[in-house]
């Protein structure tokens, strides 16, 4: 019961933030001329030719707030404008390119979290010994790596030097043909999952070959971050009083670390997961661009350099809303994980 009211309250608080976000985005668009802004409202290329009508119909020369009202009205119905870059409505573009990015995220996120937690715990357990110093150096270097450079180097080695072993893109041309043929049912439009569902080995292998490098590129920076966080969190947890109590109870070191310390150490790491989402969103733009991996990151970049405002802003808006929702989920998760944060009183 209390959980539901908590979620409800948080959703209510979301509204002013989302309102602010949309006003902010819309404010940016107002920096453009009415002609340019017209792309935010149209849904087909034909309409481009008749801009005057568009401008009149949507009142693109009226004051700020009436325009905002019009715009937000149609945003809520799903019309985010027209994307010149890919010749389809922005909303459609998002859903068209989303599966690819989701695929990346689904493969990368667990990898990042689990590797980071594992390495971080190990580093804390072997504090000030070679393993700790080693992981620290790796973490700092990893954290300093420019993602785009790492991607290029990886491509250079694994695609260039190893003659096409791990190529860019999502699928090789032969497999592309297979995937778009009638025999192959695209359930999720995520190649790896679809390949499994279609029990098609070659496609799966091909998709995996294409996805490994982008995943690694995305992961390195974030693993470094989570690893350091987990390490310091573990160290803090291991310094607490209940650890001494646990040892005084006669528990083995393994149980003390795994049961008592780690559970507490994971709490800050979970709260950070919200930010992991943001980091992935950022990383995805660069990674997809380098590997020509056609997901929403790639689309966003194309839109940005070609000044396709509707796309860029639509992407930004989409991300913002998603991010806010993800943070809400993380906060709720946090209350599940840390008993102190639940809504209760004291027992006398």
């Amino acid at each position: 019961m209390e959980l539901r009211s908590y979620i409800f309250r948080r959703l209510l608080l979301l509204i002013p933030v989302l309102f602010g976000v949309t006003v902010f985005i819309f404010g940016i668009t107002m920096l453009f001329s009415p002609t340019q802004r017209a792309t935010l409202y149209i849904t087909s290329p034909q309409q481009m030719r008749d801009l005057a009508t568009i401008i009149a119909r949507y009142g693109l020369d009226r004051p700020f707030w009436s325009q905002y009202a019009t715009w937000i009205g149609q945003v809520l119905t799903g019309n985010l404008g027209w994307s010149n870059v890919v010749s389809m409505p922005v909303w459609n573009a998002i859903w068209h390119y989303l599966p690819a990015t989701l695929e990346l995220a689904i493969v990368a996120a667990p990898l990042i979290i689990l590797t980071g937690i594992f390495l971080g715990s190990k580093a804390a357990a072997h504090k000030d010994r070679p393993l700790d110093h080693g992981t620290r150096v790796i973490a700092i270097v990893g954290w300093s790596l420019p993602t785009f450079w790492l991607g290029l180097i990886l491509l250079m080695i694994f695609y260039g030097y190893f003659r096409g072993f791990l190529p860019p893109g999502r699928l090789s041309t032969q497999m592309e043909v297979v995937v778009t043929s009638a025999d192959f049912i695209r359930y999720t439009r995520m190649n790896t999952i679809d390949a499994i569902l279609n029990l098609n080995g070659p496609v799966l292998l091909d998709a995996l070959r294409h996805i490994i490098l982008p995943v690694i590129t995305l992961s390195v920076v974030n693993v470094a971050f989570i690893m350091r966080l987990m390490r310091s969190s573990m160290l803090e947890s291991l310094g607490k009083g209940y650890i001494l109590t646990a040892r005084a109870k006669g528990l083995s070191e393994r149980v003390v670390v795994n049961k008592h310390a780690r559970r507490n150490a994971l709490i800050p790491v979970i709260t950070i997961s919200g930010y992991l989402f943001a980091a992935l969103a950022n990383g995805v733009v660069i990674t997809e661009t380098i590997f020509s991996y056609k997901g929403i990151g790639w689309w966003a970049w194309q839109s940005a350099i070609r000044l396709d405002i509707a796309s860029v802003l639509g992407f930004a808006l989409f991300n913002a809303v998603l991010f806010v929702v993800v943070n809400l989920v993380v906060d709720v998760l946090y209350t599940r994980v840390d008993p102190r944060v639940r809504l209760g009183g004291t027992v006398q």
């Binding site: 933030v17 976000v21 940005a304 405002i309 930004a316």
Partner: peptide
């Protein structure tokens, strides 16, 4: 609240939007 609004965007993406503007 204002910081909330700005922090609702992943940094690179918002930066991209601003630069393209």
């Amino acid at each position: 609240r204002i910081t909330d609004i700005f922090l609702a965007f992943p940094t690179l993406i918002l930066a991209m939007a601003i630069v393209s503007v």
